[in-house]
Design a protein around this nucleic acid. Sequence first.
DNA 1: ATGTTATGTAAGGCTAACTTGACATCGGAA
DNA 2: TTCCGATGTCAAGTTAGCCTTACATAACAT
Lengths: 72, 72
Amino acid sequence: MLNKVKEFRDKANITQEQLAKKLRVSRQTIISIEAGRYNPSLILAFKISKVFCKQIEDIFIFSELEGEVKDE
Amino acid sequence: MLNKVKEFRDKANITQEQLAKKLRVSRQTIISIEAGRYNPSLILAFKISKVFCKQIEDIFIFSELEGEVKDE
DNA sequence: ATGTTATGTAAGGCTAACTTGACATCGGAA
DNA sequence: TTCCGATGTCAAGTTAGCCTTACATAACAT
């Protein structure tokens, strides 16, 4: 799952540490998410989208590759 | 985090097992999410929203209680 | 009465999503 | 040059989101 966290963080002109504080998570978590090492929990995704005043779908890009929905 | 999975599943008139199959998860996972025992991963939340043709925000209700964003 | 379908609970195991702490690098300011 | 702020890596630990298996119950049809 791709995400635009770093992009929006840069636009907001805040550091990883400042963002971590806002979200009440560790800086490591921000680094790992920005680097795409793992995906945030749904709750954290909500908080991130709130910080940047966006929809979750605007920040996190669900690729069709990572699990198609069975049509049946 | 509250969710409307059961509500939308009932509207779609499908069983837990059918939904599980579509999402490629176990029935237990559906039960636990509907019962609110835990939140889905972000990826699963995306898949669920896709099945019901909704936005994540339409199905999962982020309560202010579960972690406010620090304004500073 | 018996079987089937849908839902639910319980227990145990695995991995992903977090944490903390220690240390490395690189660019810009004093 | 030295220092400091911002970013990043590595390692080791905890917890939450999944899994499978097995069993319970209630509704409903045969």
